[in-house]
Computed example of a mutant assay.
Amino acid sequence: MEDHGSTYLQLFVDETTFYNRIVLGSLLPSSVWDPLPHFLQTWLRNYIGGVLVYFLSGFLWCFYIYYWKRNVYVPQDAIPSYKSMLLQIYVTMKAMPCYSALPAVSEYMVENGWTKCFSRISDVGWLAYLVYLVNYLVVAEFGIYWMHRELHDIKPLYKYLHATHHIYNKQNTLSPFAGLAFHPLDGILQAVPHVIALFLVPTHFLTHILLLFLEAIWTANIHDCIHANLWPVMGAGYHTIHHTTYRHNYGHYTIWMDWLFGTLRDPLDDEPKKVM
């Protein structure tokens, strides 16, 4: 049984090694990364992947909404300045090495058999996979909501951590680049529920990795101030209210946790008050 367990855990090691070789082998000379221990290779792969996802999603979305579709989604006088966006990039890049450590640690725990991860969907079947995925998302959504809310309610946490992000508190300072502009510990704390879920819910390993990287794309999207009005998605319209009132819309992907715990505020209710 122990041999079988070790053999199965080796699947995770082989999988992360494969991902490392794809990313690092494509972008760096082997002499730079091959001598590194496996954990550091994983961290470096996550760092490079995080930087690429952050800049590609940020630049492409900014180009689309601020230049290609100028005045269609965002009024000219509400477009954030270059100075604001460069500051957001600076804050993010200072924190990115720490952000990259969290998925490296979660992968290490998976490789050592400490979680409920499974390597192949065929191990459980598609129906079970979908049920587990929904449960994982509910656990993560619940955890992120309360982590975010406590970062506001516990005053020292807000003052020393979360206030770094809330200097962006109106439309002409919010941009897709603000999505990851957190104090490093703040950003890690808000992503920790994804890791906690691995101990509570059987989770497909690759799905977990993809969901962590989806965070970078999602957070860019919810800071663009464009209200898509797609129920029950917690889109940018809701999150912009969070940046102006500080007491509403703590949720992440959906409005359900805010609805459940009484902190939901709908952008449509604020629409007559908007100055365009």
Rank of each mutant, 00 (worst) to 15 (best):
I48W: 04
L151E: 03
Y250R: 04
V139I: 15
F59A: 08
K273R: 15
P75R: 06
T17I: 07
M257V: 12
Y250G: 04
Y66Q: 03
N221R: 08
N20W: 07
T254I: 07
M93C: 12
W218E: 00
W33Q: 04
A140S: 13
W256Y: 15
W146V: 10
T254Q: 02
N112P: 00
L211I: 15
L214P: 00
T92C: 05
I48T: 04
D266G: 03
L40V: 07
Y73A: 04
H243W: 04
I121L: 09
F142P: 08
M276L: 14
L180D: 12
T173P: 03
K69F: 02
H204I: 05
I48D: 01
S30I: 03
V124T: 13
L180V: 08
F39Y: 14
V32G: 02
P97S: 01
L264Y: 14
H243E: 05
L137M: 14
L44I: 05
G50K: 03
Y246P: 00
P202S: 13
I79V: 15
E107G: 00
S84Q: 09
I154W: 14
L211M: 15
L28I: 08
I217N: 01
A178Q: 10
K94Y: 03
S175D: 03
E150R: 10
F261S: 03
C225D: 08
V233W: 07
N46V: 05
F59K: 01
L264A: 13
E107K: 02
A163D: 04
G251P: 04
H38M: 06
L127I: 13
V195F: 05
Q88A: 12
F205A: 11
F63D: 02
L127M: 12
E15Y: 14
N172G: 03
A101Q: 00
M234D: 02
K155D: 09
F261I: 06
L185V: 11
N169Q: 08
S30R: 12
R21E: 15
E141I: 10
L102K: 01
W259L: 14
T263E: 09
G187C: 10
R45N: 13
P35G: 07
W114D: 01
Q76D: 12
E141R: 10
I217W: 09
C98L: 10
R70I: 01
D34G: 03
C225G: 00
V74T: 10
T219W: 05
T203P: 11
D14L: 13
I65S: 00
T92S: 09
P156A: 06
A140Q: 14
Y82G: 02
H227M: 01
S106L: 11
V13S: 10
G251N: 07
F213A: 05
H38D: 07
W126G: 13
P80D: 02
S6H: 13
P272T: 13
Y19N: 08
Y158S: 06
Y54A: 03
L28T: 05
H38E: 11
L44R: 09
I65M: 02
N71D: 11
V124S: 06
V32H: 07
F55M: 04
F261P: 08
K155I: 14
L86A: 06
F18E: 12
E15N: 12
F182D: 02
T263G: 08
I154M: 11
I196C: 10
D34R: 05
A178T: 15
A236H: 01
G125T: 10
C98H: 06
H204W: 15
